[in-house]
Design a protein around this nucleic acid. Structure first.
Lengths: 270, 270
DNA sequence: CGGGATCCGGAGCGATACTG
DNA sequence: CAGTATCGCTCCGGATCCCG
């Protein structure tokens, strides 16, 4: 048994146990036989239905015995068979493993997520910089949500026709122009980018532009939009005073600069 | 650690490992680091895509390390991390369990299936009898397949309007009448019933009728049709000489008796 | 109380095609 | 060779209702 297990054995049995409910139920029945409802309370999160189904599957495989007393109201008890008790020790081994390595696992997940983010950024021509997101006057959701505000309050908007064959370079140029004019970049060229996270609201990330960056093409294709030439993202200057946003409408791609505090002279007159 | 494991720990990690592919991959990487394609050959049954996805998940959780050599063609190797090697011993424990208890498990499955069949039969008002299915001149699929033959060859058909309020008792009576007239029952009242199996063709099962049987109502609802009053099944006399079939058409339920060998006088004239 | 039957959305998974 | 992208389907799993 030092090597791999014989081919046909593992799959046949594993398929039955490869549900997390099966493992949790075996664990819950570890030392007492339980009635249905108590068991339901123990497994925590399982639905009424899944408990019944998984119990039947376990009974089918001889891991659990079901004892129904013919009383009113009915009284049904579930317990592990000898095979089930044996299995339970193995399951406990896996649980012990998870407890022992939990910090490692979480660290690995964070490293993996960071690595993935860096890869996406690099594809867009950006580099993450250590500067963390300061308390911004605008939240990422604010800057991203809703129809883009018209920049009547001292900002500026540039639109490019989506049919334009030079859409991507022109949008990139517009972005660069507005970023410079409205002082998006901090002293080291850094600014805040709203990166979409899988679950939860977007998060501000401090980045800087690398030579040859292509936010509207490769960047939009990577994660700053839905596809190349369809950007959908927002940026914020490190001091939080100006927001830049790129958004894709039906006919045109728009790049918008909006001062976020006291709109007026100093930004627009620059 | 003698009791149940702490609630929040198990689910978090188990969800990642509750896929049979994850366990099989960990097992496959037990002692050698493998390249993608070799690994694909080892895991046996996994799709190209699932291997890639599961590997990424395992890498994400720090169970597997991916080493990509920047050569042409690319060369990527997968190996277990220390945590992965630790996990692997636990997985091996589960595999050992499956090997040790495999006969038990298969026996339990057969017992369960038999029990389920008996329950279904009892619900229809039937009892299984030890008599096994002899080599019947008709296979179950023959008797069940296609549109029911008109009994021009010495048999008899009785139809009942599906709108008839007494459909079920009348169909039951028709079945009983034809069963007696065409000698469906053997000496002990037994006959062969084509029971639908989940996978594979129908199988002949030796049964006998219990008092108060209701093949067309409860029986059809249980497994001899699609619902009460919609029977769809076939029976065969133990000697295989006569087939009875109940089938549900658009307007009527039909009960049909068909001699299977030398149609003619002795059966029809009875 | 302890389920079963049914409906339905979403995740899992496979087949195929394309890429560096 | 070692993936990723897209599509489509199946089955998991939950919510709800019903039954003995």
């Amino acid at each position: 048994m030092t090597g791999r297990s014989p081919k046909p054995l593992a799959p046949a049995v594993l398929t039955g146990l490869a549900s997390r409910w099966a493992l949790l139920i075996v664990d819950a029945l570890a030392e007492e036989t339980l009635r249905y409802t108590r068991l339901h309370g123990r497994v925590d999160g399982i639905s009424h239905q899944m408990l019944a189904r998984t119990l039947r599957a376990l009974e089918r495989d001889g891991i659990v015995v079901r004892t129904a007393h013919a009383t009113v109201p009915p009284r049904v008890e579930y317990a592990l068979t000898p095979a089930g008790r044996d299995l339970r020790t193995r399951v406990a081994g896996m649980c012990a493993w998870s407890r022992a390595h939990l910090p490692e696992i979480e660290a690995a997940r964070e490293r993996f997520a960071a690595e993935a983010e860096h890869t996406r950024l690099r594809r867009a021509g950006l580099a993450a910089v250590p500067g963390g997101p300061p308390a911004a006057p605008l939240t990422a959701t604010d800057a991203l949500a809703g129809p883009a505000r018209r920049p009547g309050d001292g900002g500026r908007e540039i639109g490019i026709d989506r049919a334009d064959p030079f859409l991507v370079p022109r949008a990139n140029a517009a972005w660069a122009r507005l970023a410079l004019r409205y002082r998006l970049y901090g002293p080291a060229g850094e600014f805040l980018l709203a990166t979409a996270v899988d679950d939860g609201p977007p998060r501000w990330r401090a980045v800087r532009v690398l030579p040859g960056a292509d936010l509207m093409g490769a960047g939009a294709a990577a994660f700053l939009g839905t596809a190349a030439g369809r950007p959908e993202f927002a940026a914020l200057s490190p001091d939080g005073r100006v927001a830049l946003r790129a958004t894709t409408g039906a006919a045109r791609v728009r790049v918008i600069a909006v001062p976020t505090d006291r709109p007026g002279r100093d930004a627009a007159s620059c």
